[in-house]
Amino acid sequence: MKKLLFLLLALGAMTTVSAQTIPDVKIENQKGETISTLSLVQGKPMIVSFWSTTCKPCIMELNAINEQLEEWLEEADFEVVAVSTDDSRSVSRARAMTRGNGWEFICLYDKNQDFKRAMQVSLTPHTFVIDADGKIVYSHSGYTPGSENVLFEKIKELAK
């Protein structure tokens, strides 16, 4: 535990403020093809949300974003990327759920959790706001109804 503490303190001391960029990881798209996460960076800001079929607050958050998406898109141009961390047990259910819930997002399937590990996600939901150049500008874990508004505030700041 002491070692951990010292390591963390050392890291804290080294800290300089600079934005991190999205890591390059292979992931499956809705069609089942393997793509690189870097291909998501298309000159638009994005909300990237990690979810799974067994995570109820994740689904609540994505439904809340989906509800307000049309209004938000009138004010700022951005993409929403829903990354399912479901493994092979439930990935086909995740695919069905994204369609069944009518989510108008880019849906990705991180079956081996490589993207989840690279983005340092311990618990879902974990949601990131990423700017047009692929830099992570904000992230939040957990979901409480209404916290999706913070994500949109960050997107609006980027659109300015």
Binding site: L4, L5, L8, T16
Partner: peptide
Amino acid sequence: ISLALLATAVAAQAQISVGKGQLSGSI
């Protein structure tokens, strides 16, 4: 000790760059 860890974690919010690479982590 856990609480001390938390305080450090909160303080270590910002991302870290070392040279041209970047360091990230989670606890």
